[in-house]
Structures are given as structure tokens and as C-alpha cells.
């Protein structure tokens, strides 16, 4: 056997090895170039060598070389078809590994709960109003029928800025501001921050959030107040919640009421309940018909118009709804607490 034939044999071996490893079009193209390139392909080079042989050697080796070339071409064609065929995609050896997540920020629970409340009232045709947090004694107390020096002010312990200005102790001054500039019908809620000079404890902080509601129109009654607040509380706490209205006192409403809901921690079953103290009830809001003096203070005729108002502590109600034992959790802003509320 001539040395050329041995060489051909070696290249055949090489080609078969490479062909077996060829997996894609790119590798196929490289293989094709390596063997069939018109300038430097192995087979081209082998044909160059063939030209230099004697005629007999040329004849026998030529047959072998031509066979090899055809073999290569055929294998390449087969490989090409194989490579072009769509191959089954593989994702990962373990499809149970955790997925890639995009973190969605958490709203503050107060924002979340306030929004829930707003949505219920907006669905009943209420508008959302706002007002300043720095108020005058007139808007915070006097216009709301708190006589100067009256002990009624004691429940609204106040942080003062100077003799004229204070931090509002409730959202009620916004009632006055709205009624001063707008004539009935009025149908609004007023969410916002309020301030009291309270020594911090689990249910008292010097700053918290309230939402105030006010309806003024002809013919508004206590029955309307009851019906609307009952609907609101059911929308917030569920259809089956027990609700109780009982008489109370606020200078700016007459008659006044406080509204309790059944304790959602013990349902009145636990005499030692930490949430309701065993009474089975939890006070959630104060309400009443707008006091005629308040109407007079804003030049609305109480003989023509009547109205109802309510005020609810957002923090404390959210504490009930989410079973949060301490009010200060809201303002520590611990991410491990806050991030629980991106469950909405």
C-alpha cells in the first residue's frame, strides 16, 4: 500500500472521529471546510499529492481517494440533515429548582387599610378631601363646639406650636373647612394624620391616622348614619360581623354614638381576651348627627339641612383586622413586618 493510501486511511479515521462529535451547523461547517476547502482542505491537499504519483499508483490510489471524497460528502449531507432537524430543547436538569422572582414592594399597612376604607366610600359616591395638619384652635375646637376651657377638651390632649397654632387632634377640622367653602349636598371622607399628646403605650401614640366621614343634605337622619356605617363595617370585616350602636358624647355631634363590633379575636367567648378585655366588643368609631351649633358656625341652616359624621382610627382598626397587638409596629418600619403586607 502506498503511503498516500495510508494517509487517506488516517484522514478517514480523523473524519469519522470528528463527524461523530459534530452536533450543530457551525461545527458541520468547520468540518466541511477542514476537508473540502478548495484551497486548504485535507482532501484537496490529498488530490495535490495524487498528481505527483506514478500512473499505476495514481490509478489505484485515485479510486480510494475518490471513494473517500464521496464518503465525506455523503456523511456531510447526512449530518447536515441531522443538524437542521429541530432538536428537543432542554431547560434544566432539575425543573423543581426555585423560579426567578421580581420583588414587588410592600405598601405600608396603614396605606393599605386606608385605601380599603376609601374604596368602600368611593363606591358609595363619596369624595376624598384633605386638610392641613397644623390647625388653629378655632378649627380644631371652637368651630366644633368645644367651649374654651371645657373639660371635653381633655380627651383631645393637644400638642401646641404656639398660642395660636396646634397639631390637629382629629380630622374633624376639615369638616369645617369643607362646609365653609362648599354648600350641601356634601358627601366626603377625610383621611389623614392626627396628633395627641399621649404617652406611648400599646394602643396610644402621639401620631396616628384617622378617617372622617361627613354627609350633609336635606332630610339626613340617624337611620341613614346607621345604615351607611353598618354597610361600611360589613364591607370591611365581613357580612356576619355583629355591630352595636350605643350613646356617647362628642361636642360636635348630637345625638352621638359609639360603634362597637364583636371582638374578632374571641367572639365574646373569652373572659380573659387580650383584645376586648372580655367584653366581647371592640369600639371602632365615634359618630353622630352634626350638631346644630356646628352648622351655625359654618352658616348652614340646621332647620333646612341635617347631616351625619363619623371618625375612625385607622391604626386601631387595622390592628383589629390584622390582629396586630402593638400600635408602634406601624412606625418602627421593620421590613420583616412591612413586607407581610405586599400580600394585599
Amino acid at each position: 500500500m502506498s503511503s498516500l493510501q495510508e494517509k487517506i486511511e488516517q484522514y478517514r479515521q480523523l473524519f469519522n472521529d470528528l463527524a461523530a462529535k459534530t452536533k450543530n451547523i457551525k461545527e458541520l461547517e468547520e468540518l466541511k471546510q477542514a476537508f473540502l476547502s478548495r484551497k486548504k482542505g485535507y482532501i484537496t491537499l490529498l488530490f495535490d499529492e495524487l498528481k505527483q504519483l506514478s500512473p499505476e499508483e495514481k490509478k489505484s490510489a485515485g479510486v480510494v481517494l475518490n471513494d473517500f471524497k464521496m464518503e465525506v460528502q455523503q456523511t456531510l449531507t447526512e449530518l447536515e440533515q441531522k443538524c437542521l432537524k429541530p432538536k428537543a430543547e432542554k431547560i434544566s436538569p432539575d425543573l423543581t429548582l426555585p423560579g426567578r422572582k421580581i420583588y414587588w414592594g410592600a405598601p405600608h399597612p396603614i396605606t393599605l387599610f386606608q385605601r380599603k376604607i376609601e374604596k368602600i366610600f368611593i363606591s358609595m359616591g363619596f369624595a376624598v378631601e384633605e386638610g392641613p395638619e397644623i390647625e388653629t384652635d378655632y378649627y380644631n375646637f371652637e368651630a366644633l363646639n368645644f367651649p374654651p376651657y371645657h373639660p371635653a377638651r381633655d380627651s383631645w390632649d393637644t400638642l401646641y406650636i404656639n398660642d395660636r397654632l396646634l397639631l390637629r387632634t382629629h380630622t374633624s377640622p376639615v369638616q369645617i373647612r369643607v362646609m365653609e367653602k362648599k354648600k350641601p349636598p356634601i358627601r366626603i371622607i377625610i383621611p389623614g394624620k392626627v396628633y395627641r399628646r399621649e404617652t406611648p403605650d400599646p394602643t396610644h401614640l402621639p401620631m396616628f391616622h384617622q378617617v372622617e366621614g361627613l354627609v350633609v343634605d336635606r332630610g339626613i337622619t340617624f337611620a341613614h348614619l346607621k345604615g351607611t356605617l353598618e354597610y361600611f363595617i360589613r364591607a370591611l370585616f365581613g357580612e356576619k360581623i355583629k355591630i352595636r350602636f350605643r350613646p356617647s358624647f362628642f361636642p360636635f355631634t348630637e345625638p352621638s354614638a359609639e360603634v362597637d363590633i364583636e371582638c374578632i379575636a374571641c367572639h365574646g367567648q373569652d373572659a380573659q381576651c387580650r383584645v376586648c378585655g372580655g367584653t366581647g366588643w371592640k369600639e371602632i368609631l365615634g359618630a353622630g348627627l352634626v350638631d346644630p351649633q356646628v352648622f351655625k358656625n359654618v352658616n348652614i341652616d340646621p332647620e333646612k339641612y341635617s347631616g351625619w359624621a363619623f371618625g375612625l382610627g385607622i391604626d386601631r382598626t387595622a390592628m383589629l383586622a390584622y390582629e396586630i397587638p402593638e400600635m408602634r409596629y406601624f412606625y418602627e418600619n421593620d421590613l420583616r413586618f412591612l413586607r407581610q403586607f405586599n400580600r394585599r
Binding site: 358627601r187 343634605d217 339626613i220 341613614h224 346607621k226 351625619w308
Partner: peptide, 12 residues
């Protein structure tokens, strides 16, 4: 005292 819906003469 009964519970009634607060009537609305206008929406805001």
C-alpha cells in the same frame, strides 16, 4: 332605630 341607605342627590 332602623338602618337605611344614605340617599344621594349628587355624586362627587
Amino acid at each position: 332605630i332602623p338602618s337605611e341607605v344614605t340617599p344621594a342627590r349628587s355624586f362627587e
